[in-house]
Design a binder for these strands. Structure first.
Lengths: 337, 337
DNA sequence: TACCATTAATTTAACGGTAAATATAAATGA
DNA sequence: TCATTTATATTTACCGTTAAATTAATGGTA
């Protein structure tokens, strides 16, 4: 009773195993009555075809792997939500892996996926400036890969990203129009694709408005709250910027905390804008002007792309790039005086 | 080349498949040199034992399933983060399922896990007042189940929860001590275990301070932002409470939005406290007094509990209940005048 | 020398399910 | 009537890996 298999079920029904098997897969020759009889008995015995046996035989797992840098993060959890929705509709299961931004973990996860556990991979990369060619092994194994948001430029595979350059340009421009003259750009990993594009938008916007670029205003931050707090306090006291543009959400929060500590009033003394997927940005003190990526949509698009690759590999150009637009939402943190 | 299996590798090495197999599993009789020779060749060919074949043979999947009501949610994403950490250390993989609070999806996910795909399940329930006995089938299949946070009282299985009654009592008491006389309690699903316990704490605290209990102050909310906004605005205008205690994070945010709309000033006219896992509660306007559950810790404890059940089923009492303490963190939203 | 123990390999038989090839019976048609 | 088609079921072989049973080779001991 405890672990019924197809043989026992077949015996109980006085049928062969392959007839029973057919009842669970639509295509084949089987009479309606037999099928119903089998399914009824299966329900009674609480039988389900063993997943590992089926997949071994069919050589596919109906499972996709999702690799992200962090889980407890607004952007990624929304993106995963989007992926989940699509996968569920297709009857696929989702494996989740978090790299904690450690390149070695990313490599290890990918390597462990060579064994058939997943039919495809959706990944937002850890972003170290390392050798990424290990990803090319996937192509040989016919394991499709889709990047989203954080990508490697030197790997050719379909991707879903946002218009980061434009958004950054607009964000910087917005600060300038609000009267800022000394704008700091906060970044965690300049090597990362998004770090680069976002920074270029910042630089070009400065140039357009004839504000000299000063690399002291490009501030390298980390993932540690304590370190960031120290870095930002020093920066804010020494450089006294009147505007801050943060390339990731976390750094906007860090800026707020630093301003609280230093008694700098936002937006009067310092205007703040940042990339952020925080849904309650309007509830912050002051409400935060954000560039908000369509996180859930990025997830659904990435999943759809992967499924296209799975269903019809030829139909997807390896250079395919889906670019979605982020939204600049103006709030108190960048209001004038 | 593209999909090498153990046979081809064995042939290339002039060895039998079982010798090759042994190189990948520690226990058996194999000479050091042979093992090294095999592993070297495997690396060269980028070979990994097929996961589905291994699991079919070994009858276990080294995979656990995690079922939660929502993914894009601070509490659950932190809890999943905790689960992921432990699972990773143990070399286990994680399947993720989101029920969107729909009971049928929960049942369907669980039913589909009867086929060996996962070795165990960690779940926070959808919480409908339905028939939960379908969960008892898991015991028959020897599929261990651990509940966390949102549980079914009528199912006997190990669980990790927080001291909700005490926290609610303290939260209500805190509002009373801050001068509130008319305290509303906001809840989404009163049938849910946490809904019940949290409400009892509220009721008992009122009683202790001789504040009459009035069920109009217990406000039934939903998961829809628009509906909640309407419900809360009506409630705030009609009942004019001076304190609000929200049993879930979302409702604290909804209260803030409603207050913004109605120009009610927090904390002067209305004090707000809520269960919340928001890390940036200090950045809200005003900063929000929270009861914060140790979300990540809940995840790690639940995972550890499940692994104990997997490794030594006898060692875990089905009635085992791990109770962690939440923290009441006082902030501006409940400050006096 | 004969015998046994040890080590290191191979052979074999599953694990549970599925598709192709094959069989059987009933229905159709010339 | 008999051959042919159709519908439905069964046999069989395999998916890739692994553990138990078996064999072969080596070394030590009486």
């Amino acid at each position: 009773m405890e672990n019924i298999n197809i043989k026992q079920l077949a015996k109980a029904l006085n049928l062969s195993t392959s007839t029973v098997s057919r009842a669970f897969r639509d295509n084949s020759d089987i009479s309606k009555e037999t099928k119903e009889r089998i399914l009824a008995k299966a329900k009674e015995f609480n039988y389900q075809p063993n997943h590992y046996a089926s997949n071994l035989r069919e050589q596919r797992s109906k499972t996709i792997a999702v690799i992200v840098p962090e889980l407890a993060n607004n952007f990624f959890s929304q993106a995963i939500h989007g992926i989940e929705k699509i996968a569920r509709d297709k009857g696929y299961h989702i494996l989740i892996y978090a790299t904690d931004d450690v390149f070695e973990k990313e490599v290890s996860f990918i390597r462990h996926l060579h064994n058939g556990r997943a039919d495809g991979i959706i990944m937002s990369v850890s972003g170290e400036a390392n050798d990424h060619t290990y990803l090319n092994e996937l192509t040989q194994k016919r394991l499709p890969l889709v990047f989203f948001d954080r990508v490697y430029e030197d790997i050719i595979t379909p991707r879903v990203i946002t218009n980061d350059y434009d958004s950054s340009f607009s964000a910087t421009q917005h600060l300038i129009k609000q009267g800022c003259k000394h704008i700091a750009y906060l970044v965690i990993n300049k090597n990362l694709s998004i770090g680069k594009f976002r920074m270029q938008g910042y630089i070009d916007a400065l140039q357009k408005y004839n504000i000299p670029y000063d690399d002291r205003y490009v501030v390298d931050c980390t993932n540690s709250y304590t370190k960031n707090n120290a870095i930002l306090k020093r920066m804010l006291t020494e450089l006294k910027p009147d505007g801050v543009f943060t390339s990731v959400e976390r750094l906007a929060f860090a800026t707020y905390y630093a301003c609280y500590d230093l008694n700098i009033s936002v937006p009067e003394q310092l205007k703040v804008i940042g990339f952020s997927s925080l849904e309650i940005a309007p509830l912050l003190n002051p409400s935060l002007t954000t560039i908000t990526q369509p996180a859930t949509k990025i997830g659904t698009e990435a999943a759809n792309l992967l499924f296209r690759m799975l269903e019809n590999p030829e139909s997807v150009d390896p250079n395919e790039k889906i670019v979605l637009n982020s939204k600049l939402i103006k709030r108190r943190s960048t209001e004038k005086g």
